[in-house]
Design a protein around this nucleic acid. Sequence first.
DNA 1: TCTGGGGTCCTAGGACCC
DNA 2: TCTGGGGTCCTAGGACCC
Length: 423
Amino acid sequence: MAEPVFALIDCNSFYASCERVFRPDLLRVPIVVLSNNDGCVIARSADAKPFVKMGEPYHQIRGKLERNGVLAFSSNYALYGDISERVMTVIESLVPALEVYSIDEAFADMTGIDNRDKLGREIRAKVLKLTGIPTCVGIAQTKTLAKLANHGAKKWQKHYGGVMDICDPERRDKLLKALPVGEVWGVGRRMNEHLTAMGIKTAWDLAQADAWTLRKQFSVVIEKTARELRGVSCLALEETAPAKQEICSSRAFGHRLHEMEPIKEAVATYAARACEKLRAQGSLCKRIRVAIRTGMFNPDEAKFAKGIVCELPYPSDDTRLIVRAALKGLEAIFRPGHAYAKAEIMLLDLRQQGEFTDDLFAEVQPAAAEKVMSLLDEINGRWGRGTLRPARVPGTPGWGMKRELKSPSYSTKWDELWRVGGR
DNA sequence: TCTGGGGTCCTAGGACCC
DNA sequence: TCTGGGGTCCTAGGACCC
């Protein structure tokens, strides 16, 4: 069997490029795209990069951007999603297999293809022509190396023409030695600190490190990363995205909320959105988590954060049930006197429909709905139990207090529900 | 009177990604 | 004044059982 070869196709400054597709007059004007509520910068065109860092709060750099003629856009995710689909369709028509990894990048299978460089250039040209989006392509024996090659293709775009193939070991090692370990896919800020302290400074150093030691000291994730850097493929191409195991819907309010009523509205909206996603992938959810918190950045603002997990009476994708449970949870955690900035809903313990057949309550669902809801009230009543302990939030001593919950055991709840269900 | 310890399940939270 | 919104995976440690 031929040795696998992966290509990573990544759109350049994707959101900014999308805005330019509809505003060709901005091709030579530096632009940035802002997050929800125009909070911070989440995309920069290449010519805007010298003026602003990724993630910088907009209100802090607004003046600087204006002085330098950088235009700012509010984000338009519907547009980006639409353009992304078109980009992926074009790439898909050119390669044997494709894994869409995120809104702006995809892994392609290039195993057994002779002229990879030519194919890479063809992909770039066709995507640009048909969608207006510029891309870069990295090619290598593993996904992690392909990411790194893509990084190189972007960094030295003029030299390589946007396509970098590091299947040749000599070329690969040269690139590994040139890039700091922090640029490696899977090495974030904390891991970078740890590795640097150990003397592992470049991607090459990590590739040489002892896998077993890495596993023992950190985790299997970083071990795999090191193996992949050596050219041993540990991550396969996944053409069909597996169903999500958690679904989250959260948002900052944009301004501070002090009362429960408007927060209830937000929580209900987020819960409904999460339910839509849940049904779209044909799953049921067994538990939900609802959480609220105050702002995180203003040192003068009192901090408070609390979340709660609630087991649903039965696995469900029913918006009404889930919204009601979420609101019950909110009532349990809400404390007056705080300036709330954000709420979050998470759907947990997801499984495909049909996987719950062993669950007792699949049968009693419809008939017992109302009774079950009142039982939920009782269960919520017990959420008050437990002891208080300081929440562990790094770097912020005294950050809020979190209630340590002692939830009733599964068996207790299920037994009671069983009776409610009339059996 | 003496007052175990191993296995497993569950949760919270860290770290990472885009 | 104003600081995103999703996700994934892993681990430590508590709870619980025998």
